[in-house]
Nucleic acid binder design. Structure first.
Lengths: 226, 226
DNA sequence: TGAATCGGTTAACACTCGTTAACACTGGTT
DNA sequence: AACCAGTGTTAACGAGTGTTAACCGATTCA
């Protein structure tokens, strides 16, 4: 019932990052520290944390940009921005809709912890384990199982993630390079070919319901229709 | 040693009461059915059951009132309330302190049985240890026992620690090298293989509930889902 | 029409993990 | 001391997973 809460913290200033991490860990949070936006995204994808704390100004990918990407996938996960004094108020406030909040630097650890607990309690009521459906299939993402009538198949991690995004964007074109960056971390030739292989695998596993198709849009990406 | 557990069930809707009674009796509980609060109190007094299952809305005496009276005499006996949808969350939760729990109608028999077993097991081990639950299992970390229905198994030290962390991070990926450092002190090749062996052992011991799975995330770690 | 490119598919490969069993170590018993 | 049971580590093999390579058809555009 009382799981340890995992948090991804993105802060490019190493010593500050370390201090925050340690402070939060004394409060029984499990903190994964990233030193830029890209790292934070990778951690977010692999760990599925309960909450994100993002410095706004970071190399590689700033906090706002990162938050926008994450909101495409999950529009409930709480995000707390750490903003410098120079950030103008209205820009920051634009981002505090949804499950967001922000803290101006410098801040006290207590303030941060209070906000984290507020946001966590606000969302504790809803759970994320809803079964997704594709045609006559049922797909349980956390369990990585794909069920057709009474037969369940276990999917691999990659297959499950790819299918998850296809379903989330059902009947829309899923951008090739976006999905590559999301799942593989980088859009290069080999990763692209690798993804094509997984599309083939998913097509095989989904062909029991021939209303389902994964259509290629040459040069753009794939679209799951059903 | 393990006498048959006696339960008093108070439910004013006769057919539902009968169904619950019969279901529980297939699980080797002896169930005494009352059709209102007063009857239930009489049964409680004469039988001294190990546990009570009380519908909240009943004629003559409602479940909460009855529970308050019983608590005057015995403040440890586990009580499970059956609540209708209309009951507000906070009123119900106010009663879940002490040895209480509640179930919202409609519920599955499985849910009820899991809660009964949890509560029975918790009182057997008294306050010193809070029982963790995984699916239909109950796990007592300090005692290193894993219980499924009425069968308890002793876990070894390593098994128990590993399971503990998996449960604490339920539905999240448990980082391979982090758990190795925590339990083995070092992340090297042999320790890694050793951990894999223990994962196998835990899977075997958890396979009586096939809703529970320990999923591998290649390169990252393991995730317990249920 | 022909060249270039993209994607579909299969198979080979490297690597990680699953599983079983043998082994070593510990502490307790006879 | 010899024995034993329980626990955890190491070894070995096989299966599973994901990447790379290779070949081919399809599409696009000059």
């Amino acid at each position: 019932m009382d799981n340890i809460v995992e948090i991804v913290l993105a802060e490019d200033e190493p010593s500050l990052g370390q201090i925050i991490k340690e402070s939060l860990e004394t409060r029984n949070f499990k903190v994964h520290l990233a030193k830029n936006g890209e790292e934070a995204y990778a951690l977010y994808s692999s760990i599925s944390p309960k909450l994100l704390v993002l410095d706004v100004m970071m190399p590689k990918k700033d906090g706002f940009t990162l938050a926008k990407e994450i909101r495409l996938e999950d529009d409930t996960i709480p995000i707390i921005f750490l903003t410098a004094k120079s950030q103008t108020q209205d820009v920051v406030e634009g981002f505090t809709i949804g499950g967001n909040d922000y803290l101006k630097k410098p801040f006290s650890m207590e303030e941060l912890i209070v906000r984290i607990n507020n946001l966590l309690h606000r969302t504790r009521t809803q759970q994320n384990s809803e079964a997704l459906t594709v045609g006559k299939y049922t797909f349980d993402f956390p369990k990585q199982t794909l069920t057709f009538e009474d037969e369940s198949h276990q999917l691999t991690h990659r297959e499950a993630h790819l299918l998850f995004h296809l379903i989330k964007n059902k009947n829309q074109v899923l951008d090739r390079s976006m999905i590559l960056k999301k799942l593989w971390g980088d859009d290069d030739f080999f990763n692209g070919r690798s993804m094509d292989v997984f599309i083939t695998k998913l097509r095989k596993k989904l062909k029991q319901d021939d209303a389902i198709q994964i259509i290629n849009v040459r040069g753009f990406g794939y679209k799951l229709v059903c």
